[in-house]
């Protein structure tokens, strides 16, 4: 294969992606949720993306489907980043877990589950990571009231 890593990845996956963009020097692909594991495995095995930097999400309250789940990959061989976005609907915000490919996905998925309520199928340990047991709701969703507190210690009166 010839060309830069970005060109190679675009040639390999651009056709099946819903959108391809180059944003701030990072290749960003929007792909279907059913292809996520397939694309991630290809990035890891064929293109040498050996680090999964972060998993997060974006809430678009007005949009259908409502959430973007965002993955950042990095290769320590070529120093290049690729971003994958998967759109998931509000009534079933679930994607396949990448724990089998990247161990670092474990904590990142737990955090994303905390903050946005995204379910990661195949990650069997989605206990709260930054939040605490008993916390109701997902604070980084746009419909979480910004001043709603859930104290663990009863307030003095």
């Amino acid at each position: 294969m010839a060309g830069t890593i970005h060109e190679q990845v675009t040639a390999r996956w651009g056709g099946t992606a819903e959108d391809v963009a180059l944003a701030h020097g990072t290749l960003a692909l929007v792909i279907g949720a059913e292809r996520l594991v397939e694309v991630a495995r290809s990035l890891k095995d064929e293109f040498g993306f050996d680090m999964l930097l972060d998993i997060t999400a974006v809430d678009w309250p007005e949009r259908v489907p409502r959430f973007d789940v965002v993955y950042h990959f990095y290769t320590t061989r070529d120093f290049v980043r690729v971003r994958l976005k998967v759109r998931v609907p509000a009534d079933a915000p679930a994607v396949d877990s990448l724990v089998a490919l990247y161990r670092s996905a474990h904590y990142a998925e737990r955090e994303c589950h905390d903050m946005y309520g995204i379910d990661f199928r195949g990650n069997d340990d989605l206990r709260p990571l930054l939040l605490y047991e008993g916390f109701v709701g997902h604070p980084l969703r746009k419909d979480y009231p910004k001043d709603r507190e859930q104290p663990l210690v009863p307030y003095r009166t």
């Binding site: 604070p139 979480y144 910004k146 001043d147 104290p151 210690v153 009863p154 307030y155 003095r156």
Partner: peptide, 12 residues
């Protein structure tokens, strides 16, 4: 002033 921070330790 958000979900995470205690708004003043004199609450507890």
């Amino acid at each position: 002033q958000n979900y995470a921070a205690l708004a003043g330790i004199d609450k507890i």
